[in-house]
């Protein structure tokens, strides 16, 4: 079917929401509670748009398109309303952007900028919280920065399936917490990090990233998770010392922006002090550091000697399901073409 958004004639299929069609076509409608992985929650109201012939604005995340629909997403009145929404959120938010580790990667901050919120007109009381929750090795929870988009709650329930967190109290006193306020380590939390990945503000932040660097100082590099066979695409956020500060992920990949505890929080082994940094040669039962020259010579000498003396089949190699395709290719080529044996295997079976 055809419809018009901001004067652009667009193609859409039945059942799509206005927001989905807009995103497909590069039209950015602000949103805080929307995730393609979740049932639309319609809570933040940031994605309100005007539809020709409809009196009040509707939320783009919940409204399905219909043929001939004419939609406007950034009219002056919508901008005004979004500004009010951002102000309302900021009025009940711990605004400490100057030192917040989320700054630069915070949707609330981005929208405050986009809608020119210079001063919050509705200052007043803030919901009372007991302070930052630091109850696990992976991330902190800071309710004072929570804007109640409910993504964390919904991801935990709809994607992870655990529902470790939910809402407490109602109205102005609503907050996200665990049953009986128990520490995450004492309940069924899997520490998958789904909630941390999608939190639009600094309410959920990786502990490893606190007080390390501003977001715009971090270098991002795309990689594939080294753990199981799903092949999650991850983004390593690196500081100036080549330390992995945190792991994030995009939505357009096999894992669709999702992670498990190992991929999200378990890649810090890269920077471990225990890493091997120099070749080692064993002498009289003890290892000593050696130069690459010496170590490679020693390996080549021994493999060459044994091949020449006993034939290639006296050598064997275990390649690795942890190494890249290119490295596996070279390892089997090495054994076959250089050593002359087919005795190369890896632990596929284990």
């Amino acid at each position: 079917m055809k419809l018009t958004i901001n004067g652009e004639k667009l193609e859409a299929t039945e059942g799509q929401t206005i927001l989905e069609v807009a995103q497909e076509n590069g039209i950015d409608i602000p949103n805080l509670c929307y995730s393609p992985e979740l049932k639309p929650e319609g809570a933040c109201r940031m994605c309100v748009v005007d539809i020709e012939g409809v009196a009040d604005p509707v939320t783009a995340c919940t409204t399905e398109v219909s043929a001939g629909m004419v939609v406007e997403t950034e009219t002056p009145s919508l901008k005004k309303m979004r500004k009010v929404l951002v102000e309302l959120m900021l009025a009940n938010h711990d605004v400490e952007c100057l030192t917040c580790d989320k700054a630069g990667d915070c949707k609330l901050q981005d929208y405050a900028y986009r809608y020119s919120v210079k001063k919050v007109r509705f200052e007043g009381e803030k919901t009372e919280f007991k302070g930052i929750k630091d109850d696990n090795p992976f991330f902190i929870r800071d309710n004072r920065k929570c804007i109640l988009c409910y993504k964390c709650v919904n991801l935990c329930k709809q994607v992870q399936g655990e529902a470790s967190i939910n809402l407490e109290n109602r109205g102005f006193d609503t907050r996200v917490t665990t049953a009986f306020d128990l520490p995450l380590e004492e309940i069924n939390c899997q520490f998958c990090g789904l909630c941390v990945n999608e939190c639009p503000t600094g309410a959920l932040m990786e502990k490893s990233a606190l007080r390390k660097a501003r977001n715009w100082e971090l270098k991002k590099g795309s990689t594939i998770c080294p753990y199981c066979g799903v092949g999650c695409e991850l983004e390593l956020n690196i500081d100036e010392n080549d330390q992995i500060v945190k792991v994030t992920t995009n939505s357009d990949n096999v894992n669709r922006g999702q992670t498990c505890v190992k991929g999200k929080f378990g890649l810090d082994f890269v920077n471990s002090e225990e890493r091997l940094t120099k070749p080692l040669i064993k002498e009289e039962g003890r290892f000593r550091e050696a130069s690459w020259e010496e170590a490679l010579d020693k390996v080549a000498d021994n493999f060459g000697r044994i091949r020449d003396e006993f034939g290639g089949d006296a050598t064997a190699a275990l390649s690795s399901a942890k190494c890249t395709n290119e490295e596996n290719y070279l390892m089997q080529k090495f054994m076959r073409a250089v050593m002359g044996t087919n005795s190369v295997d890896h632990c596929a079976r284990l």
Binding site: R45, L85, E125, L148, R170, G171, F172, T174
Partner: peptide
């Protein structure tokens, strides 16, 4: 209504409180 707001959507949860204030 402010104290009966469920807390789900921003305008009702935050807006009614500011109006009340």
């Amino acid at each position: 209504v402010q104290s009966e707001s469920c807390g789900k959507c921003t305008p009702c949860r935050e807006g009614t409180r500011r109006m009340l204030e």
